[in-house]
Every structure is written in structure tokens, then in C-alpha cells.
Simulated scan of single mutants.
Amino acid sequence: MMIGAALLILLIVFVVIATSGKSRLNVDMERISISEVASGVFQENISVTGNVLPITTFYLDALEGGIVEEIFVEDGAIMKQNDPILRLSNTDLELSLVNQETSVYNLLTQMQISQNAARQNTINKLNRMTDVENALVEAERKYLLGKKLFEAEAIGSQEFKESQNNYTYQKQRMELAREVLQQDSISVRQEANQSKSLLARTQSALELMRKKVGDLIVRAPADGQLTSLDAEIGQSKNKGDRLGQLDVLSGYKVRVDIDEHYISRIYTGQIGTFTFNGETYKLIIKKVFTQVTSGRFQVDMQFEGDVPEGIRRGQSLQIRLALSEEKQAIMVSKGGFFQQTGGNWIFKLSDDGKTAYRTTIQLGSQNTTYYEVLEGLNPGDKVVTSSYDNFGDKEELILK
């Protein structure tokens, strides 16, 4: 019993000693990742995916409805500006054009008839004006002659008075004839202006109708490549239906999807970089689409400097988009440790490299490669950056 009691006491002492102090775990160094804390240039960035698109895309919509009667080119064809792509037929529109042309021709005929009548009326008034002028001249001659004879007492007052009254009458006729001719001139001018205005409106309507009929032939709006052509012979197309698109091949842009979490930090002018065939290229944000769909929004980026040779429409690019300016900072490599620690602590190796113990840290910004270290680590420190899933709540690791 004494021996048993002694053994029990020894067991209790052993358990107390074994469980006292820090909890430890033996770890194979080949199963973990060890990184060295460094000091250098740090820039916050995120990794995003972009798709290469033509610099400009023209959508080809049916400006007028109709039946597809003829297709001049195939999908993928290289087009020049104004080259015909397809032709629609619309008999109602073509008939309206014929009716509009007939209306213009009828209006021109009526204008010619009106102008001829106006000219004839003016000629008649001018003839009457000539007669009045001649009568006035004759009345004036008789009046002046009668005045001299009356003063010489060669004729009586009755005869002189008659010539005087006739002269006064012819002068009034002359004034009236001039007024009539002036009013006729104004009336003819107004009628001509109205006719010209009506003709201009009718011709404008005719030109618009001709344009609508001309729009039945769908043409290339610019030089480029025809893509997504959606038309078959005999197919009915309504006004506004999408017929295809034309991609301008003079350059490319990159359409990028970004998580809405960063929408307040994205603006035009920001720079992104990507690697293509071993070379690094720059992109710059030119347009931000603030509409959020399924938790993401889009931006358009254009190449800054050289465009990679061999890049193609629809190609995907992995882009590092900068969110801040470059600065000097202490950095630690990104790794699986963050999922368990939330960046609040990390296993730091001892000076001899045989153990690693918990160290409280504070992290700041991040990029695709590093976390910014604000507190707890110094350049040259070595830390475990791989996952801590198998470490449990151990406070110290024995490295073997």
C-alpha cells in the first residue's frame, strides 16, 4: 500500500509538471512554410480578371422593319465604312416614297401654274399702268396749254376748268395705279415665299422618306470586323432588332469585373499591371460603370504604352490593380495562417530556429503577395505562414 501510494503521488506530480507551462506540438518543418519578414516598397493592390474587347463596338440595329432579302457578306468579314451588309425589303415604305415623290411633283406643277398666273396678272397691271401714265401725260399737256390760253383770254374758263379737272383726275388714277402695282408686288413676293417654304418642307419630307428607304440597306458604320451577324434570307426583322455588331480593330480595351466592396476606392486613372508572354504591361482605368450587378461592377481599362503582340478579342487577363501609392513598409508573405488568426497573431521562430511561438501582431493593408505589418514583427524575423489548421490551440511548435 505504501508503494502504491508513492507511485500515485509520483504520477500526480508527473501529470502536473507535464501539463504546466505552454502547450507544445511537434511539427515537421517540411510540412510548413516559413517566410522571412522583409522591409521594402509596398503597394496595396487586388487581383482582378479582365476580358479583351475591341476599343470600339458598333451595334447594328434595324432602323426600319422588313424582310431580309439579300445578305452581301458573311459573319467575320472585314468591312470598310459604308460597305453594304444586307438588304431588307419593305413594300409599304417603298410605296410611301412613291406617293411622296408624286406629291412633290404635283406641288411643283401647281407652283408653276400659280407663278404663270401671277406673272400674267402683273403684266396686265403694268399695261394698265402704261395707259394711266399716257392719259396723265396727255391731261397735263392739255392743262398747261389751256392755262396759257386762258391767261391770254383765248378760251373761256369753262374749257380751262375741264382740262384742269381732267388733269387732277389722271394724277389720282396714277397714284392709285402705283399703289395697286406695289400691293401686287408684295402679294406676289409673299405667295412666292409661301410656295418656296411649302416646297422646302415637302422636299425635306421626301428626303427623309428616301433616307428611310435607304436604311433598308444596312451598311458598315466604320472600318472593322463584322461579328455576331444574326440574319437569314426571308427572315422578318422588326424596327430596332439587333442584326449584329462591328468591332473596330484599331485597338483594344479590357473590361474588368470588380467586387462591389472596392467600389468606393476605384476611380479613373488608376493603374493595373499584367504579365503576357513573360513581359509586364500597364493598363489604366478610363471609365467606371457604377451599376452593381450580382455584387460586382465593371470598369474599362486601356493599354498604357505598348500593346502585347498577339493579344486577341475575348482573351482573359489576370490583372493586379493598384489601390494606393507605393510606400516603404514592413511586409510578411500572405499565407493560410490568416484564416485561423485573422491577422492578430502568428508563429514566430526563435533565434535558433528550433521552435516557434505565438506572437501578437497587427496587420494593415494587403496586396496579392504581402500583408503590411504595423506592429509585432521586424525585418529579418522568420514566421510560419502556412495553414494552422492542424495546430489547434498550441502555443509553441517544436520544429524538427
Rank of each mutant, 00 (worst) to 15 (best):
L126W: 07
K354V: 08
I271K: 04
L95T: 14
F347D: 00
V188H: 05
P84D: 05
E304R: 13
G65L: 02
F303E: 11
E326N: 12
Q112V: 15
F338H: 03
L349Y: 01
D230W: 07
D28T: 04
G4V: 13
M129E: 11
S204H: 11
I34M: 01
K125S: 15
L7P: 04
E30L: 15
F391N: 06
D300G: 05
E179R: 11
G272S: 00
D389H: 10
T49W: 06
I284E: 03
S157R: 15
G156C: 06
I55M: 10
G353L: 03
N99Q: 09
L321M: 08
V132A: 06
I34K: 02
F160L: 08
V37Y: 00
G305I: 02
L199A: 03
G251H: 06
E309P: 06
S324F: 03
L243F: 02
R87A: 11
Q182E: 14
S20L: 08
Q225W: 04
L198K: 13
G364D: 01
K196F: 08
G50P: 01
Q158E: 15
S96C: 12
V27Q: 01
A5T: 05
E191D: 14
L323Y: 06
R141H: 10
D389M: 10
V213G: 08
N277S: 11
E260D: 11
G76F: 01
T202C: 10
Q120K: 14
D247P: 02
Y388T: 04
I330L: 01
V332W: 02
Q328I: 12
M174G: 06
Q112D: 09
L397Q: 05
V292I: 05
L8D: 13
L25F: 04
R320P: 01
V52L: 07
D259C: 02
Q170L: 12
Q194F: 14
L206I: 03
N99G: 10
Y143A: 14
N82E: 12
Q339H: 13
T275G: 12
G21T: 09
E260P: 00
D247F: 07
D306R: 15
E396V: 11
Q203H: 12
T293P: 05
I311V: 03
A62H: 00
N106Y: 09
D247K: 12
W345L: 09
E64Y: 05
G353A: 07
R219K: 15
G214A: 15
S47C: 06
P221K: 08
Q112K: 15
N134D: 14
A220W: 00
M209N: 12
Q120C: 10
E151D: 13
I285Y: 00
E101F: 10
L229H: 02
